[in-house]
């Protein structure tokens, strides 16, 4: 059963992504409202995949991914960034920090499901 952590400050987006993740068979979704909240959830639950926004209060998605990649316990967890930042340099920055995929908002649900399915299948 893949456990997916959705890190997003917008409740609307959290609900929408969680809704979309219901299409991933046997998946379980855990929600976090920012990077710090995500790190707490990571320490309390075995997470298989992280879907993270970039622009968030307290700790943004880029800081979160850099901390995850530095930590031996979490560094192998795939991370998909979901953000409004559509510029190529933003994409490059996130990928350089270790993102496995980069999706821009407004999200295309099919695209998100495909990215998640591909990453889970590759694990």
């Amino acid at each position: 059963m893949p456990v997916i952590l959705v890190v997003e400050d917008s409740p609307t987006m959290r609900q929408l992504i969680s809704f979309a993740m219901k299409r991933i068979p046997d998946s379980k979704v855990i929600e976090a409202s920012d990077g710090v909240d995500a790190l707490k959830k990571l320490s309390s639950e075995k997470i298989d995949l992280i879907l993270a926004d970039i622009n968030m209060p307290v700790m943004n998605g880029l800081k979160l991914i850099s901390l995850i990649r530095e930590d031996n316990a979490y560094k192998s967890i795939p991370v998909i960034m979901i953000t409004t930042e559509g510029a190529q340099e933003d994409r490059n920055r996130a990928m350089a920090l270790g993102a496995n995929a980069y999706l821009t908002k407004p999200i295309q649900t099919q695209e998100l499901i495909k990215a998640v399915t591909d990453i889970i299948a590759a694990k």
């Binding site: 917008s10 409740p11 609307t12 987006m13 929408l16 409004t84 908002k105 407004p106």
Partner: peptide
């Protein structure tokens, strides 16, 4: 939130 995230 809706206009940012869902409309773009």
């Amino acid at each position: 939130e809706i206009v940012i995230n869902l409309v773009g």
